[in-house]
Design a protein around this nucleic acid. Sequence first.
DNA 1: TTAAAAATAGTAATTGTTACTGTTTTTATT
DNA 2: AATAAAAACAGTAACAATTACTATTTTTAA
Lengths: 131, 131
Amino acid sequence: MNLKHSRQRDSIKEFLATRKDHPTADVVYMGVRQSFPNISLGTVYRNLTLLADIGEIMRLRVGDGVDHFDYDTSPHYHFVCSQCGCVEDLKLPFNAGLTEEAKECFSGEIEGQMTYFYGCCADCTGEQMPV
Amino acid sequence: MNLKHSRQRDSIKEFLATRKDHPTADVVYMGVRQSFPNISLGTVYRNLTLLADIGEIMRLRVGDGVDHFDYDTSPHYHFVCSQCGCVEDLKLPFNAGLTEEAKECFSGEIEGQMTYFYGCCADCTGEQMPV
DNA sequence: TTAAAAATAGTAATTGTTACTGTTTTTATT
DNA sequence: AATAAAAACAGTAACAATTACTATTTTTAA
């Protein structure tokens, strides 16, 4: 299949590039509607999937039942707040060595690892106890 | 809330204890129906959630959009096959130190980590190329 | 300019899961 | 054993995220 240019897809990519909060498809939809008022949610899903498939963005499955998307495709760790559901980058060097270790003790083929940390984000920790 | 005994819940736990393949709620449902032919899918979901909440089983969110359940609650790594979707244990010592490292570089509270590896399992790797 | 391929908007369908409701089980107390 | 409140149940409906479908519009190479 030959990709054809699409202004909607550009817009989705642009939007994602401006965000560091790993938005969901729905958030992308709302955001892109600023410039494409009648873009379809299906178009957003289709393009997010396509962009992830060709490696231009990264799909994050962080266990909250909703897919998040990241413009930064370099391997890095994420944190997920169990309270508010926010997803943040972690400033911790990614241990690709773990994947290598895994390869050595497994008979199939390991392509990569997905690691996320969970807990309570700084904002929620602060708000949590109004006594 | 005081737990009351339930034969259905026992049966769900027993079933899970016999399995090492980290079945989904649906698979548990089918399995438990051998002994409880008219158990309700809702009962299965409710009890799996309850058992996971009280720490008697572990819920695995391995990014395939379906929850898997594990009778083994000790921290350990999992592998997920992108082809057939199977989930297997990895014989690789769990690196809890990574969670400690993450705590040190994050301002909120980190409770734990979830790591899974993905790729192609041994079975699928073999079947893949019939030339 | 044209025509095939790709993409689109809008809608319907699917899937995994949770919520609701009236009935049955469990269990502590008589 | 009888009773009654709490918990759990079966069965069904609702829900949310995502995917599939269809007729129309855009893109692009010839």
